[in-house]
Amino acid sequence: MMRLVAWGTLVLGCLYFLLPLLGMTEFSLKMRRGEYSLDAYRVVFADPRFWETFGYSLALSAATIVVGVVLVVPTAYWVRLRLPQARPFVEFVTLLPLVIPAIVIVFGYIRLYNTSSFLPLTGSAFGTDILLTMGYATLALPYMYRSVDTGLRTIDVGVLTEAAQSLGAGWFTILARIILPNVMVAVLSGAFLTLAIVMGEFTMAALLNRPAFGPYMQLLGANRAYEPPALAVIAFAITWGCMGLMQLVTRFAKHERAKA
């Protein structure tokens, strides 16, 4: 009886998530009257703005991931190695982007870095891109930090560090050749989550007036009928593709098999 209830709950849960997706996918295929077609997808892919915004967001995702890794890996490593007492504080700080809305953060940025400020980043497209990248890195911070911290938990950071030091390695070598490769799967999962966040982010990009994928999706959604669900399906495919990649990377990382 209990097993039946469990299965029933699972099926209900799956339906709750899958039915809207199925409905949306089905609707995205109905552009041609009376038959299913991929016309909506064809229109989306034929739109040069799709590729421009998609490419732009992809580039900014890469930059955000680099910033995130450079910021988070040494921080999480140092907290674990030398400042364990600071861990609750650092965790609190990394969680702040979850409770402070993106719109508050971006208005703060605009006030701080406008053209009449000491660092007028919004004065140029490149400067605004830097600002947007930093904003994305902030939004992705909770996910990136937790991923990396979980990865660090699986290795004996202190002993590996001391072993490397006794062999003559400095901090950069230890981080680049020992710590980072050993938490690579965790870093990649953080990176893929960052990618998913950046690809769908609207508020910051819209308010900083940058041609990102999020505002494009919103624009399309406001003006078209069949293309937005097609775009949403594409966005889901990107996210799921990222999750699949995470699994693949975990499977192919030879030394990770020992931890499994």
């Binding site: 072993a163 020992i178 931890k259």
Partner: peptide, 21 residues
């Protein structure tokens, strides 16, 4: 001197081999 400047070899209880290498 720092540990990495002393030219001293060390073996640890927990082996401490680098798992990625």
């Amino acid at each position: 001197l720092k540990a990495n400047q002393r030219n001293i070899g060390m073996m640890f209880q927990a082996y401490a081999l680098f798992p990625n290498l």
